[in-house]
Design a protein around this nucleic acid. Sequence first.
DNA 1: CTATTTCTTTAACAAATGATAAATAATGGA
DNA 2: TCCATTATTTATCATTTGTTAAAGAAATAG
Lengths: 193, 193
Amino acid sequence: MQDLFDYFEQFQKLTEVEKNAISSTCKIIEVKKHEILEPIQSTSKNLYFLKSGVVRIFYYKDENEVTEYFALAGDLVTRIKSLLTQQPSSKAIQVLENGALVSINAHKFFQLFDTYPNIERLYRLLLESAYLALVERIESIQFYSAKERYATLLNDNQLIQKVPLKHIASYLGITQVSLSRIRATFQTNSDTK
Amino acid sequence: MQDLFDYFEQFQKLTEVEKNAISSTCKIIEVKKHEILEPIQSTSKNLYFLKSGVVRIFYYKDENEVTEYFALAGDLVTRIKSLLTQQPSSKAIQVLENGALVSINAHKFFQLFDTYPNIERLYRLLLESAYLALVERIESIQFYSAKERYATLLNDNQLIQKVPLKHIASYLGITQVSLSRIRATFQTNSDTK
DNA sequence: CTATTTCTTTAACAAATGATAAATAATGGA
DNA sequence: TCCATTATTTATCATTTGTTAAAGAAATAG
């Protein structure tokens, strides 16, 4: 669990008591490639912290899978809307590479807030950080071409090596064919446009 | 200030003491059409709650204005990245229709968190709500055509009547010419696709 | 190791959007 | 009210992305 606390403490310093309280809401689970960690239509009960491996969140739009989010080691993974509303989710969490994650019982974790304001603060800071990341993602989606977004992914991420390109395509909001075309232009001409 | 508290109490019930504490961080200001409330390159010090009028957040991408967000009465307005990082913002807040807003001093407001965990909770719940709205916006941007998004704006919003179409176009991530074309198809044929 | 399935690329054509220019329409200030 | 400015639409052509189909490459199960 140390890696989880290292991550948390980038946001908020925690006492041993607080860490123990958090530990009591967590368990470590191993996951295997292709496994559906949380299926579509289930109601989310957990937050996950990815220790190793790769997972994604995806959903269907008109028969087609759309990947909404990729997580690598050190990332948090949640179907947050379902978690907060306790409604069934239209999204699923799937494992793309074998790994291990910390599963945090959200109900128990949220209950800690009344006793430990510092844990609520940690959570608040995590949310702020996630919020900022989303704002940047919106700018990237809305105001950059697919080619520019792919170029950014190439720089930012080890993702390209680890996940099927069809998932990358839907994550970028384009078809796989279109992504192939874009990739082809990167072979010869390494502009970004 | 009552409308602000009505809004807040949808998220978290507040005591009189807490409301007074919040009031001490606020002032009401009147704003006029075209006024730049916070210019580009300034560092954001305030959160705003719009009592009346219309404002937008915009920035420049390659000489072109891009509208990121519209706020109507009852909405919160923040350049959140700058507010949280205290770095100069690449974005500006501009008034589109005369109105009034509650300006909340962020530094003072955040300081209340140590004394009033309930106010931090309120803020946390506001963040959660804003986060969910962003997730939905991403889905809307990434997986619906400009035409579908415009149709949604038509239904959801009084915005269309109140703000110049060029701002709507950049908000939708398309050119004004393209929006004009889309609007033309709505005259004859009221499909959405 | 081979066969089958899945993934990725390529091609050809269609549809949507962008860029530029010009024509109308609407708005705001003197 | 009239003029000047700004906003919106229309037209034309270029570019990007989508769709469908098929071929080639890679991964996986038996």
